[in-house]
Amino acid sequence: MSVEQAAAALRGAQQVVVLSGAGMSAESGVPTFREAQSGLWEEFDPSRLATPEAWQADPPFVWAWYAWRVGLVRDVEPNDGHRALAALARTHDVTIVTQNVDDLHERAGSEVLAHIHGSLFEYRCGDCGVRYDAPVEVPSEPVERLDPPTCQACAGDVRPGVVWFGEDLPMDDFQASVEALESLTKGDVCLVVGTSGIVYPAAGMPAIARGAGATVVEINPHESDISDMCDIVVRGSAATTLPALVAALG
């Protein structure tokens, strides 16, 4: 299907909900979860670095890897796809729900309703849960251990604000995402950008939009597990297709 078909759907939309996945950020050069397992970290299984059990066993070890990932994300810039969504929000009511733990949507100028898998940049205490907003040390080179910051409320170790294997999604973000999708009506659009459709419950979100009557548009260079539930499928990358889509709107 064509960009023009997707643009035609957007022209009549009162609301647009964007569901973005890893493909949205990959074109900015953000390393995927496993790509960050390089150099010093390549010998370690990610499951040793992204579970509550790993954190409890060795906080400095886990914190060092996440601090390294923070540095990698800070070194890249939003791509044209991120910027196109920010431009779209100037003419449409756009709500962004992302599975990505980076801040590229925000740096491109968009407001994000929900990071349903958490964020690398929203630190909190691993003991009392209080948010930690002070600056954190980011190593210029990977190190095997780095002491995490200390919570100012209870003196516990500050942890990354991401969702680890075995943890529940942040309920407020997830509920807000579902409510945004359920508020869509016939003529509205759900844009699904760069997601594989494998990870649940995020993979079930396009079905909520479709059930509400919205037109579901997938933008992805590859077929995904949700392609067959989309009304319009545009095969292309986020960084090239989204700017073309916004341009087609005039």
Results as ranks from 00 to 15, higher is better:
200 Y>F: 15
25 S>F: 04
236 G>V: 10
250 G>Q: 08
16 V>I: 14
67 A>S: 15
85 L>G: 01
15 Q>N: 14
228 D>R: 15
172 D>P: 11
111 E>P: 00
67 A>W: 09
127 D>G: 05
156 G>C: 03
155 A>T: 14
128 C>P: 10
172 D>K: 15
14 Q>G: 15
9 A>C: 08
114 A>F: 09
243 P>I: 12
176 A>E: 03
4 E>Y: 13
27 E>L: 06
175 Q>P: 00
58 D>R: 14
137 E>V: 15
243 P>K: 10
125 C>A: 07
233 V>I: 14
69 R>C: 01
188 D>S: 04
199 V>T: 07
219 I>F: 13
204 G>I: 06
220 N>I: 10
18 V>E: 03
62 V>Y: 12
79 N>Q: 05
2 S>Q: 06
227 S>V: 08
41 W>G: 00
96 I>L: 13
76 V>E: 01
187 G>R: 08
216 V>H: 04
189 V>H: 09
124 R>E: 03
41 W>L: 01
221 P>L: 12
108 A>F: 05
175 Q>Y: 10
17 V>H: 13
81 G>Y: 11
202 A>R: 05
198 I>M: 10
126 G>A: 00
105 H>N: 02
118 G>A: 09
241 T>N: 05
211 G>W: 11
238 A>F: 03
192 V>M: 04
55 W>Q: 03
8 A>L: 10
147 D>A: 15
157 D>K: 15
102 D>P: 09
104 L>S: 03
137 E>T: 15
145 R>I: 05
185 T>P: 00
47 S>G: 09
1 M>P: 01
105 H>C: 02
92 H>Y: 09
22 A>Q: 07
54 A>E: 03
115 H>G: 05
34 R>T: 12
203 A>R: 09
227 S>W: 12
193 V>L: 06
